[in-house]
């Protein structure tokens, strides 16, 4: 079904942007672990980095790649191969490359320096975040044929999830400061994959102690097995729905 996946992988893994991304992650990871005596602190620094860089790269690179591959996608569509295969090959090709870059750049150093449970969660959430944002970028590309608009949409998505969303949540706290919002906070977390990833790693660290009552609630929920399970399911849903929506559009799309 995915005969062309191999060739798409060959193409992407030799891409300079992907190689650069891997090297950048690797240098930063080794540097953080090198400078910090306490590996947990290094994981914390890496976490902040991951939550900004991974979504950005996983949104922008697939978008640019897909627009540049327009003619090639057209050529594939004229071959005896279904649209579903073309889509899945391209999706898997890009997603696997992004995950591989992350695992080499961040996963290896974390394992080598012993990041502990928090480190493992960092690797797991980073992998899932890669999938989520590759999916969202596919959806953005399917929604518009214009390259500039497509990149605009993906940057807006990044801006919203990485920066704006937390601001909005804080604003809501401010407005409704007279009410208890602990459980609402938990709900807000599920609506942003970046927040989910952040919480999943943070609750494994001692720093979560300074987060107050909500922090204690988070630790109680997300630190537990079933909390982890729900959060992972939420992250899985976050990558599945955009990719299914994008696939549905691509199958009916005029190229």
């Amino acid at each position: 079904m995915i005969k062309i996946l191999k060739y798409i992988l060959i193409d992407i893994l030799k891409n300079r942007f992907v190689i650069g991304y891997t090297v950048l992650l690797a240098i930063l990871s080794w540097a953080f672990f090198g400078f910090e005596i306490n590996p947990e602190k290094a994981v914390l620094s890496l976490l902040s980095l991951n939550l900004i860089v991974v979504p950005l790269v996983c949104l922008v690179f697939p978008t640019i790649y897909l627009y540049n591959a327009t003619e090639f996608t057209e050529l594939l569509a004229t071959q005896p191969i279904g649209r579903r295969s073309i889509f899945l090959s391209q999706y898997l090709g890009i997603a696997l490359s992004m995950i591989l870059a992350f695992l080499i750049g961040v996963g290896l150093p974390v394992m080598a320096y012993g990041g502990g449970e928090a480190g493992l969660r960092l690797i797991l959430t980073g992998t899932l975040l890669s999938l989520v944002f590759v999916s969202l970028s596919f959806l953005a590309v399917m929604l518009t044929a214009d390259k500039a608009k497509g990149i605009g949409i993906t940057l807006a998505l990044w801006f919203f999830f990485a920066l704006l969303y937390d601001g909005l949540v804080l604003l809501i706290y401010l407005i409704f400061s007279d009410y208890p919002l602990d459980f609402a906070t938990m709900g807000f977390a599920f609506l942003n994959p970046i927040d989910l990833a952040r919480i999943l790693v943070l609750v494994e660290m001692d720093v979560s102690a300074i987060l107050g009552l909500t922090g204690a609630l988070f630790k109680d929920f997300f630190g537990s097995t079933y909390g982890l399970f729900f959060a992972l399911v939420a992250l899985l849903l976050w990558f599945i729905w955009p990719v299914l929506a994008a696939l549905k559009i691509f199958i009916r799309k005029d190229l």
């Binding site: 060959i10 003619e71 090639f72 071959q79 005896p80 191969i81």
Partner: peptide, 16 residues
């Protein structure tokens, strides 16, 4: 489509 050979006006292939 295995019965059809197609030559497009402009070709762009994967770079690598």
């Amino acid at each position: 489509r295995s019965q059809i050979g197609y030559m497009p006006q402009i070709s762009k292939f994967p770079s690598n």
